[in-house]
Nucleic acid binder design. Structure first.
Lengths: 337, 337
DNA sequence: TGAGGTTATTGAATCGTTTTAACAACGGGA
DNA sequence: TCCCGTTGTTAAAACGATTCAATAACCTCA
């Protein structure tokens, strides 16, 4: 079928070992032979069989990445950062979308395990340290992304979500809001829990401020829309005067519900709204959305860097890298002058 | 390091062949032995090494998918459809994002080639039939997604974009618009060309309608925003009275520019706006966006189906499946009563 | 000239699974 | 009793690249 090293070797009149050397340690082989082998490779259209290479090497040159939601631009930015960094060292990234479902998450981890990937980057749904420990026994390192590990036995690259939550709510309070609602869920997602915790802390620092929590089953536009409709259905005096949505997708759903024909709740006049992630769409929304920005590509990049180091030296002790989030105030929280 | 079939065989007191049989053709092995082997597998935490399996099999049980833009929900829906269908036959999908860049596209195809994937699904940027032909020589079938092939030597699953373009513009005309602008690009993307062609046909059918073409370098929110700003900068009488954006991302950018503070071009009153793809965000936009809907998950699903058939029987002649797009009219084109 | 050192190349073993031909054990029919 | 067919199991040969110890070829210097 397709040409193998053996065919190349035969055509070039050298041994298979030499062909391998031409590809992997060119400095070991003379210019004349190298040229002859290259010619044979081109003539036969030889492409290395990665399975065989992997089998011998014991692991692949692929890094697995599982994100909570590919449709969330935050994660595609993380993925891009990871890809670019990985490519620099000759690794490729294969992307899995858990879609916040544990069974999908497990399926991808299984896949990565049978594929003997070089390492795993994951933004986990619940607690998966047991699963990751098993991978580590197979010498497959793992780095948590956008999430600090519960114990510190795994490295992680994250943004301080507690801080981000506080940032968001402090901003709302500084704009004169007092009856704050947090909309987010499910609580299995650590980011949601952390952002809520930050929100609670900020509210606690202001005796006259209150925080209401509205639970969601997923962080999506649709869920946000439903929650927003719930607010619209209330008597105006029972509505919060500010909403902190657990991410921008949710915020966009809420926004849509509030502005919907027949609802006409004015943003930010009646309800101020802030999201999280600062995705591209945030600034393109009905009312440009205030949000909390995270250095997404940098997260992916850093995670790969740590992963490669740990793969090279499994004895390395785990590191926790935490980036700081940044407030981006737009019209959804700031009344026009 | 990690356990192999040999270890399992030793522990269970059988030969490696039997262990393989337990996993791949359980009907060939007696219940007693099967149980003993299973116990050994569990005890050792044995996980099959896919590289070795692949090496023997000659190809992997993975399908490669390259999309133009992972951030475009249309493609994530296609990917999801493909994944689900593939999983049903025990295949997994690895997702690559070409981001409309030919070098990234080439990188992924190279990766798939060395990995000897079972097949390739791709929404190509330019003409890559030569590249795909090379894959076919390696017995790796390819199916074009969201794009008909120029020659019919490859199967494809697509939506009739010419029809979709016509649908969009006919709708605009039926709403009383006459000075239509098409915003999209680059022209290397066949979808853009087709949608424009459809638009031209629709305009041609109405002698008093005109079509202006505004070129973009990419189908993104940002590019759309820039083009939208260009319209705003014109004298009102020089502006089109309707815009057909090549996809929803572009449309959202245009919309944002038009509604931006200081611009205040009213949609649809002054300019009607229609996009393409009907992504989730479309209905969540400033003004809910009219769009052309494609059966995205179905596309992915169908593509995998054809791919698997062709992989099983390379002699099969290529098929072209074309789905029909559907108009979804919302407020961005229809004046409120 | 020959010993010693360097460099380029080879051949064979190896990775872990699947597959296939061969074989053993057993029962039923003639 | 012998032969044949069935069923379950085994041993060995692949798959294709990498690696390493062994060898060959050449150069340098005494």
């Amino acid at each position: 079928m397709s040409a193998s090293v053996k065919d190349v070797a035969a055509l070039a009149g050298v041994s298979v070992g030499t062909v391998s050397n031409v590809m992997n340690r060119p400095e070991k082989v003379s210019a004349a032979v190298s040229a002859r082998v290259q010619a044979a490779i081109n003539q036969l259209g030889f492409v290395r069989n990665d399975a065989a290479r992997q089998l011998r090497a014991g692991h692949s040159s692929t890094i697995g990445l599982v994100v909570l939601d590919v449709r969330n631009p935050f994660f595609t930015d993380v993925a891009r950062g990871a890809e670019d960094r990985a490519a620099r060292d000759g690794f490729s990234v294969i992307l899995g979308n858990s879609d916040e479902k544990t069974d999908r998450e497990a399926t991808y981890l299984d896949l990565f395990e049978v594929q003997r990937v070089h390492g795993v980057l994951i933004s986990p749904i619940g607690d998966i340290t047991d699963r990751l420990r098993r991978l580590r026994e197979r010498r497959i390192p793992a780095v948590l992304v956008d999430r600090t590990s519960d114990d510190t036995s795994f490295s992680s690259v994250s943004v301080d979500d507690v801080d981000g939550g506080a940032l968001a709510v402090e901003h709302l309070i500084s704009q004169g809001r007092r009856r704050i609602a947090f909309i987010g869920g499910p609580m299995e997602i650590q980011q949601v829990v952390d952002r809520l915790e930050g929100a609670r802390a900020a509210v606690a620092a202001h005796p006259d401020a209150t925080l209401e929590v509205i639970h969601l089953d997923a962080l999506s536009v649709i869920e946000g829309r439903i929650a927003g409709a719930g607010l619209v259905a209330r008597a105006p005096e029972d509505r919060p005067d500010a909403v902190f949505a657990a991410n921008d997708l949710v915020a966009m759903g809420v926004l849509q519900a509030l502005m919907m024909q027949g609802a006409d709740v004015r943003v930010p006049d009646q309800i101020a709204l802030i999201g999280y992630d600062d995705i591209d769409f945030a600034s393109a929304a009905v009312v440009p959305l205030s949000s909390i920005r995270q250095p997404s590509a940098l997260i992916g990049q850093t995670a790969v860097e740590i992963l490669l180091e740990e793969a090279a030296d499994p004895a390395l002790s785990p590191r926790q890298v935490v980036f700081q989030p940044k407030l981006v105030a737009r019209e959804s929280t700031v009344r026009r002058a």
